[in-house]
Design a protein around this nucleic acid. Structure first.
Lengths: 341, 341
DNA sequence: AATTGGTTCTGAACCGTTACGGTCACTTCA
DNA sequence: TGAAGTGACCGTAACGGTTCAGAACCAATT
């Protein structure tokens, strides 16, 4: 039976014909993929876990890029890609338990996420992306701290000392407000923690007291969030000369907000982002470009290249500072006095 | 055992504790999802088949919108979404056979696609989207022919009679060239066939000989394709007053090409698209907006609402003509003489 | 004629889970 | 005291494939 479908060479054409003939007559729909998976211990699919609602993956340009890269790796290997529905609000990890996959890719979830814990308990290989190092788990990412540090250095060299920050959510609980230093250090989202650390380090090294810097956090990753956070920061300290956002989406929202308030960018205020999505490029945003597609592809490759079994492996991709038109020296600096406003 | 994990109420806490305890000691990784699926006959996932490489789903804005809607429906139902890798170049339907899913959504594949045939052979419910009617299969779509007809009417009322057309691929074989009338009628992509039919019908009714209209086909759905097709059409007939494209992506490419040639839009030439993606809106394209997200959501709902088992069902969503700034009366019409160029 | 080699075909074991029915101890009520 | 009822627990049979050992068969060699 099995041979008739999958190994035509193992039996005579005559028998094969007869088998298939009667199979059809009996209305046999072909081998059941699940039973096959059970026996062969191969599901032919990899699972993707991400911290947001499933549909979020198709709203955030950076996530889309990551998925495209991951899909590229999957189609090369002829593997399916299963999007695992992990509702961040609920603690329901059943979906992780139910996923019939040969491995998991975990993309940017809080490090205390129960879904992540459930994945790690499953006896399948896992690759994490934008996560802190984990024992015996492959990792793909960038050096968020260094990348943000270099962006900060750029702003510092332009003369900025009084800044405000807008960041994505730092933990699983909602806090659409300013962030305490403790919360910053305890942040469960590795990426955000690292970026803030890079900023803090750079500005502290030129004498800026980090605790005095307003850092506004937003749970939802939307332009509207960026706008409201920017408003909150500007309310707190109207004298800031630069608004640093930890993502382009937030930065685009912030940009809209400051412009709505009649501030000119970059003449009156500098705004920066992070990610390097296309929309940011069109807006001329000063930002850090990271290779999102490559991240996805690398994660997929790592998971599917079971040849090299020397785990854990780590891939750190490089980033690039993008000098757009939204950053300039603050008003009244030496440079401005030399070159005119 | 099973009860200990899945039905804590069926046994005493004491026994449950003991079972889990020894399970952990023996290194038992928890119930195997594949075996569970085999026994319960539920995979907890729906499969998505689309005609392009897997990664294409993340490159085309319309496809992304569809996927977002589908993901929305999936997350509501707590179901996973499995992207099935169906390479359009190869005839390898094994991936369809291997997919452990409770149902399929088939999105815009040629009606003679072997992958589609393989899906229909599987004994699971199926919903097709942007496909012709099929016996016993649910369907979601729009009235492509009517929508394109109304766009054509608009152009006709503006005074256009000499037009060129750029369309997506019409069959599984590559034909980056003009399309014969036979090929148009035999087109295996329902959507493209219907849109061309809508155009032909509208223009024929005002005396335009459809066979004289240059229709350029492109296999790849990219802006570059739109540009090269536009160039080919303009080469053939430089006198056309309108360039009608069957998708926004193609139209944006065509727009770039005509502008590169020094033609002003819409003063010298009218360009239209189809889909209503955001990029088109930003470019002010005259187009037809279709509710891509709703299509995905409707497809998912149809598949997952197993309550109503009165198959087959069909959902036809409505479209909307978007009057952008890329369509105007052709040069030298009465209107132009009245209002100036 | 018996042995060997090779091919084609058959049957049974196994993958790990859940559903189901049966056993057993213990309580309740006549 | 005994019958009936209740609930916890356990054993077993599928689910539908794949795999592999070995049976059966045929042809060629000794």
């Amino acid at each position: 039976m099995s041979n008739a479908y999958n190994r035509p060479d193992q039996l005579s054409p005559e028998l094969r014909r007869r088998v298939l003939e009667t199979a059809r007559r009996l209305g046999y729909p072909g081998p059941d993929p699940v039973a096959r998976s059970l026996r062969t211990r191969k599901a032919g699919a990899v699972g993707l876990l991400l911290t947001e609602n499933l549909s979020y993956a198709f709203r955030d340009p950076a996530a889309i890029g990551f998925l495209e890269g991951l899909a590229l790796a999957c189609e090369d290997a002829g593997t399916g890609l299963l999007l695992v529905p992990a509702n961040p609000e609920r603690e329901d990890v059943a979906a992780v338990h139910r996923a019939g996959v040969d491995g998991f890719v975990v993309y940017s979830v809080p490090d205390d996420d129960p879904h992540l814990a459930a994945v790690l308990e499953r006896p399948v290989p896992t690759v994490v992306c934008d996560q802190p190092d984990l024992d015996n788990v492959d990792r793909v990412g960038i050096d968020d701290q260094a990348a943000m540090h270099s962006l900060a250095q750029h702003l510092i060299s332009l003369g900025h000392r009084r800044i405000g920050v807008v960041c994505m959510r730092l933990a699983r609980d909602r806090n659409d407000d300013f962030v305490t230093p403790e919360r910053q250090q305890a942040a469960h989202f590795h990426v955000q923690r690292a970026r803030l650390a890079g900023l803090a380090q750079a500005f502290a090294s030129v004498g800026v007291e980090w605790v005095t810097v307003p850092v506004a956090e937003r749970f939802d990753h939307t332009m509207a969030s960026g706008a409201s956070a920017a408003a909150q920061v500007l309310e707190r300290d109207p004298e800031i000369t630069a608004l640093i956002c930890t993502s382009d989406i937030l930065a685009l929202g912030a940009l809209a907000e400051v412009q709505k308030r009649g501030l000119r960018v970059p003449a009156d205020i500098t705004v920066t982002g992070f990610d390097g999505i296309r929309e940011a490029e069109q807006a001329g945003l000063t930002t850090v470009r990271q290779p999102v597609l490559e991240k996805g592809r690398a994660a997929g490759k790592l998971l599917l290249d079971s040849a090299e079994r020397t785990r854990p492996r780590a891939v750190t991709l490089s980033t690039e500072l993008v000098l757009g038109s939204t950053a300039a020296p603050p008003r009244g600096t030496a440079e401005e006095r030399w070159f005119g406003p």
